[in-house]
Design a protein around this nucleic acid. Sequence first.
DNA 1: CTGAAAGCGCTTACAG
DNA 2: CTGAAAGCGCTTACAG
Lengths: 346, 346
Amino acid sequence: MKTTTTLKQVAERAGCSINAVSTVLNGARGNTVVSDALRQKIQLTADEMGYRPNLMARAMKSQRSQQIGVLVRNNSRIKDEEVNAHPLAYEFLLGISEGLEEAGYMMSLVRLSDVDPEKHTQASAFRGHLLDGLIVVNDVPAASPERLELLVPHCLWLDNNVWHEHNCLRRDEAHAGKIAMQALVDAGHNQVCLLGHPSETNEHYSFAQRTKGATEVAQSSNVRLETLTLAWEEEQIVQAVQMAKSIIRQQMAFLALDIYAAHTLMTQLMREGLCGGVHYSIACCDDGFNGGGLDWGYLSRVTFNRFEMGLESAGMMMKITDKQVKQCPSQLMRGTWEKGNTILPR
Amino acid sequence: MKTTTTLKQVAERAGCSINAVSTVLNGARGNTVVSDALRQKIQLTADEMGYRPNLMARAMKSQRSQQIGVLVRNNSRIKDEEVNAHPLAYEFLLGISEGLEEAGYMMSLVRLSDVDPEKHTQASAFRGHLLDGLIVVNDVPAASPERLELLVPHCLWLDNNVWHEHNCLRRDEAHAGKIAMQALVDAGHNQVCLLGHPSETNEHYSFAQRTKGATEVAQSSNVRLETLTLAWEEEQIVQAVQMAKSIIRQQMAFLALDIYAAHTLMTQLMREGLCGGVHYSIACCDDGFNGGGLDWGYLSRVTFNRFEMGLESAGMMMKITDKQVKQCPSQLMRGTWEKGNTILPR
DNA sequence: CTGAAAGCGCTTACAG
DNA sequence: CTGAAAGCGCTTACAG
């Protein structure tokens, strides 16, 4: 066990009261006033002794942990399998972490299964008054908003189906649908196939919004619209790919509603020697990773800066947990169009 | 502010001592013995009052926060840009989180820039005695092991260049290189082009190990080996793709050292209408995401279950933080071969 | 202007 | 077998 220097020890060595030390080292806001000379002496002995404040003690006294939880999905079903990684959420996390760190807060990761009402044991963070707030990332159908708001003082909904006047941060998905469709129209396409998933997996608000935005533009531009659904079963995928090939022969462009649809179709077609931007056109309303070397730079798509959104959500949380403010108006963030290389002119 | 029920309040209502309540509700290990009748009564009143233990208080008393930090990279340079997301780390995180949660621990995310020695302010988690341990994920060149071990009682090195007899968990990268090369050999290939990155970005131990394993197999199977380096500059990439095309004409197969190399080459070639598994063969020593709908199911590769590794590392950390045990032998985990669809028979 | 003291909510050694 | 009391390391209202 590493020995720890406490305020008391510093006070003894410096020959003054604990108050003075607390005031100087931790900026305590009591009435204690400390002379410059004493201040220097305290600082010096603290440095010598390697004093580091004990945040648990401070948190306990102030009844605030300075910790924000981030709730992520970890148990959805894709292709009939339990899926753990929703890698796109990671960019959110890093943004949130950066924002919180700047504000002197810490970030705890909480997974959806930790708050599963059917599980007897809930995550200790929830049980233990350990979180000043919770940022709920992506949609978490299994955890009802009411339950979460009961467990944690303040909740913020990021990229989530929950949408109120306050404490929510979303992408402007209708706008994404619009600009993606507009890009196809601008390239001369007048037949577009909307690429989505079976409706039972379409729970996220973004699908409806993107479809709406895309359809509006299509109608006002006299674009003929079709729909192709990519189910998860091997057999259905094979079928869908056959249909996709006939769609390509008709020189119709694809508009994928999300990156998963785009990815699935493109990789399947690649196995038949068909390349996006070479043999067919495809645009996407959604973004993949930004950076990290696995990005989708070649895909013509709407790009959202999830890192920036995470940062923003951390800022919102700081307002919400502020005792004076307590809430923060909801925000909508717009994506921008990324030209990419997968739209052929017509 | 949400009102909180304390042990004291429960004790008052139940008409007994705080000790008894603590023993019943939180399983305190004092000498207090509680009769079944009292036990029931306490449980009942606690439920009525909605008692939840205050973990900060417990942590303070026991001098253990029950929190483990996870340190991830967030500031490497790829293509001359600061890159935030290293999405492959996310699968580790989720595994770690699951393992820690099972053991009643919480997980805090710490980013590399939070421990930057050049930054004046360090993450509060580090300063504040808030972490019982730290799992260092992937290589973090900027943060020296010595510094980290000073700041946190126990460190565990996951998929990291740090390698000792104890407290490390790594993939068996030489094995990965071997089985990937072997798969190409088995498919009849006797000319293989190793696909890597410029050496200045090759700091991670895995590159050397994979190359070693692959080379061994190549030599014992009389495979002719070449090398192609994928640099990050646009111009250099164009050049590399030209070389790749000539390599394809020679019917040489590619062996990508990591998923980034595989991804870059495949997407670049796709833009020229060339598809892996159709026009050329490619295998990879590394894995992309598992699940999540963005997976690389079609790529012939070595697959590592990062989630499982995260889980394992959490278990190791529990041993390390145990006052009796304090350390844990290092482990090497092997990947398995995933056939995929990108190797053509020769 | 300063310092002693109470108290945050627990756990546990100790006295009855 | 039980309960009162000390103490974890801080902050801050309060008395001197």
